[in-house]
Write a protein that binds this DNA or RNA. Sequence first.
DNA 1: TGAAACTACTTGTACATGCAACCACTCTCA
DNA 2: TGAGAGTGGTTGCATGTACAAGTAGTTTCA
Lengths: 133, 133
Amino acid sequence: MARVRALSRTVTSLYEEELRPLGLKASQMNVMTAIAVSGEERLSTLADRIALEPSSLSRVLDVMRRNGWVETVIDPDDERARLVRMTDAGNALYAEACPLWRTAQTRARKLLGREDAEVFAALANRSLSWRAP
Amino acid sequence: MARVRALSRTVTSLYEEELRPLGLKASQMNVMTAIAVSGEERLSTLADRIALEPSSLSRVLDVMRRNGWVETVIDPDDERARLVRMTDAGNALYAEACPLWRTAQTRARKLLGREDAEVFAALANRSLSWRAP
DNA sequence: TGAAACTACTTGTACATGCAACCACTCTCA
DNA sequence: TGAGAGTGGTTGCATGTACAAGTAGTTTCA
């Protein structure tokens, strides 16, 4: 348990070190990636996809909105819901961030060992599926 | 990366669910365990052992001290340093927490699969060693 | 159709976490 | 031996994270 958390802290700091020049945090990159794959999504859908509480995602989006990277609009189909989408600035930043992200990934793989990383990825995937019914 | 963090969140919430009746958070239990194995340690030693920034540990200890679970005294050998030790109340709480902790561990193992958990533990151990010179 | 139940998100509150800057003590070396 | 470098912790600041409670819009059903 402690080890899972320590691993998370260590790997996070590795990625953030790489992203720091862009002023991006790991959690924000995480959200950007989630939006990037689908273009525009409801907050709850995103939260579910990245296994984050909606309230936490809401806070992360506050910062990202303040930075002008994303915008949220009321879903015309359900006025309770919010659609989250990237701004042009957000897309530009994301494009800059991706190579740095991959660099960090390479560093992480090098440290963990490529095969171990695969094993771990499979494990982690399974952990995510716990949430699925 | 996102998966490591998601795993950490998921597993943390599993443990915290179990510890909630005692008012203990995962990070606090983490610190207690570290102290329990050695009795009394410097803050920096503990921080190093659990791969946490000293500043973060300092904050966790603030809460634990406020709750009366630990106390910190000036190290007579080096007045810059602080020795952290458990109080009686802390030890009592720790004793109560351990069984709950193990319950959570069992649940986590059940979800991950026992063998996978071993593999993961080995992986995570390696990640900790990254910090060692 | 209108109130109750439900759903989507936000906000209050508390704690977690890291980095940079800072304070206090210790060590080194001219 | 005294100033400067080094070390151990704490604090300021920003963000992440979760749970509980609150708000607003939607659905259900008598």
